[in-house]
Each structure stands twice: as C-alpha cells, then as structure tokens.
C-alpha cells in the first residue's frame, strides 16, 4: 500500500523533499522525477534525430534517415486531411512535436518501476505538465490566429454586434475551456490508468495486470492522438477565413 500511496501522492507534496533533486538558484524551480524523465525523453528523441539527419542524402542512405523521413511524411499525411495540405505543412513542427512528446511521456509510465523509483515518472500523469502543454497550445492558437487574420480573428466573438454581450463572454470562456479540457482529459486518463494498473497489481498480482497494461498501451497512444488532433482542429479554425 505504500507503493500506491507514493504513486497517488504524485511524488510531489506527499513524498516531499525526497523527490527534488536540486533547485535552480534564484528561479525557485525544482528538478523533480518528472523533469528528469522529460529530459531523458527529449535527449533520446533529439539524439536519434541528430544521428538520423546528420548527413541527409537525396536518396536515403541510412535506415535512420528512411525512418525519420517516414515519420515526418507520415505525420504530414496524417494531419493533411484534418487541417488541409497547407496547414499540415505549416503546423507540422508543432503538432508533430506534441504528438511525439506526449506519446513517449505516456509510455514512459509503462516502464517497470515508473512512478516509484527516483527519477522516473510519467510526465503526463502530472496535471502541471499537461497544463503546461495546453498552455503552449493556447498561445500557439491565439498567435497563429492573430498573425494570419489580425483583428478579424476576434470577429466571431462579436459577429452580429447586437449579440456580442452574449457571444463575447462565451467566446472568451470557450478559448480557456479548450486548454483546460485538453490538459485534464490527458492527465485524468494517464493518471487513472496508472492507478488502475497499480491497484490491480496489488489486488491480484498474477497474470491479470497484463490486461490493463495492454490497455494503457492503447490508451497512451489514443490520448496522444486526441490531444494533437484537437490542437490541429483548433489551429486550423483559428487561421481559417470565414466564408
């Protein structure tokens, strides 16, 4: 039960000082297990990309290059029908990075010992992390909309002007509900899944936890997909000219 309680407390306030590796002087930022896991994910992905794209040939020379090309082109082909060819090209770096980041963060929670050994904890099982990602999405959507359409971006909030007392607050609330929902949906799924696996592991320690583990494998992918899918829709509606 200690294991579970540690997992439930999120290794944060509950576990207290034990999870903080060090503080950044002056900034008050603490490096926790979640931060180190994030760094590890970033490092792995970036090193792979660096190795794969070190000497790109017009005809793929290495397996790594072929794989990276497949990934980038696959992501583009995946987003194209949702947001259109042009938007898929423009938003690919953001959407692709989000997808890779969330997917690996979700899956890091499936590694043995994740959540109860120091330095390894699924980043997306913490609401702060998903809220941070959602904040990035929020600012990207606003930035893209305003950059592409200027003040017309806000038109839908005041369109029939006589309805604007109603539309304006609704529009503003909606803009904030979106990232809120994005972050909470992701964290609730990953965190909930983690707890289910742990609870089953302790209640019925035999073969049964295989089932929720396999479930987590599916759900982790689906959640990364949903997060980026909705981000793609928000971005494309923000830059779309009204007809």
């Amino acid at each position: 039960m200690d294991l579970l309680r540690l997992a439930v407390s999120g290794g944060g306030e509950g576990a207290g000082k034990s999870d903080v590796f060090f503080r950044l002087p002056g900034l008050g930022l603490e490096v926790t297990s979640i931060v180190t896991t994030t760094w590890a994910i970033m490092a792995i992905v970036l090193v792979l990309c660096w190795l794969g794209t070190r000497n790109l040939g017009r005809v793929p020379r290495t397996r790594g290059q072929a794989l990276l090309e497949l990934a980038v082109d696959g992501l583009r082909a995946f987003f194209a029908p949702i947001v259109g060819e042009e938007n898929a090209r423009r938003f690919l770096p953001l959407l692709g990075s989000l997808f890779i980041f969330i997917l690996l963060a979700n899956y890091s929670g499936l590694l043995p010992g994740a959540g109860h050994i120091r330095g390894l904890k699924a980043p997306t099982s913490n609401w702060g992390v998903t809220a941070g990602l959602a904040a990035v999405v929020f600012f990207s959507v606003q930035y893209s909309g305003i950059r592409k359409r200027g003040l017309r971006y806000f038109k839908h909030m005041v369109d029939p002007w006589y309805l604007s007392p109603l539309l304006l607050p609704l529009g503003v609330i909606e803009e904030f509900v979106r990232p809120f929902a994005l972050s909470l949906r992701l964290v609730a799924n990953i965190f909930g899944g983690e707890i289910v696996v742990l609870a089953l592991l302790m209640a019925i320690p035999w073969f049964l936890p295989i089932v929720p583990l396999a479930l987590e494998l599916i759900f982790g992918g689906i959640q990364a997909f949903i997060f980026t899918f909705l981000t793609a829709i928000y971005l494309s509606t923000a830059v779309a000219e009204e007809h």
Partner: peptide
Amino acid sequence: EFSTNELIWA
C-alpha cells in the same frame, strides 16, 4: 495535484 513547478518546467 496541480503543481506550478511542473507547469513552468513543461
């Protein structure tokens, strides 16, 4: 929990 520390880091 909702931790601002993790939010900023993220």
